[in-house]
């Protein structure tokens, strides 16, 4: 058995002319391009199962805003179960072979001071804002006990 030791040519082992700076620059920009493509909008609008969700609050309400472009109102399901707000959206495709094209699902754990009833949601321009009213602040009850 022959043992061949092979050194991968590097910039140091080769003369500068053979492995010039231009090659590296080209590769670098190509890698940049690949990473940028992966990070931005090259994926199709109908792929993926996550969608961005924002959570805001003020004194009276907790607001959850989800970006869910391109759904019908009937395809969006908002539920509050066990202190979690679940947003679910399904998209049916045109072809009969695969009627369910996409299913999106997110769930947000709600803080304790949020009421589970009186939750309202709308769907405007592809954004789903959900308003969850907070419990009125429970004032500590002062009980005076007469010591007899």
């Amino acid at each position: 058995m022959r043992y061949i030791r092979y050194n991968t040519p590097t910039r140091r082992s080769l003369p500068a002319a053979a492995f010039g700076r231009g090659v590296c620059n080209g590769l670098e920009s190509e890698i940049d391009r690949l990473f940028n493509a992966a990070a931005s909008g090259s994926q199709s609008p109908h792929s993926g199962s996550r969608f961005p969700v924002d959570v805001y609050q003020d004194k009276n309400n907790l607001y959850v805003r989800a970006e869910l472009p391109g759904f019908g109102r009937d395809d969006i399901n908002v539920e509050v179960v066990d202190g979690n707000l679940t947003l679910e959206a399904t998209r049916k495709s045109d072809s009969e072979k695969a009627p369910l094209a996409a299913k999106f699902n997110r769930s947000v754990t709600l803080p304790d001071d949020v009421k589970t009833d009186g939750v309202t949601a709308a769907y405007v321009d592809g954004v789903l804002p959900v308003t969850l009213p907070k419990l009125e602040e429970v004032k500590p009850r002062k009980v005076s006990v007469a010591v007899g």
Binding site: G41, P45, P69
Partner: peptide, 24 residues
Amino acid sequence: VQPNYEIKETDEAFNLSVNLPGVT
């Protein structure tokens, strides 16, 4: 920010769909 988009090609046209949530 670049929005997500998709292009589908037919014989007659390119159909482009762009996700622009929150834009009127």
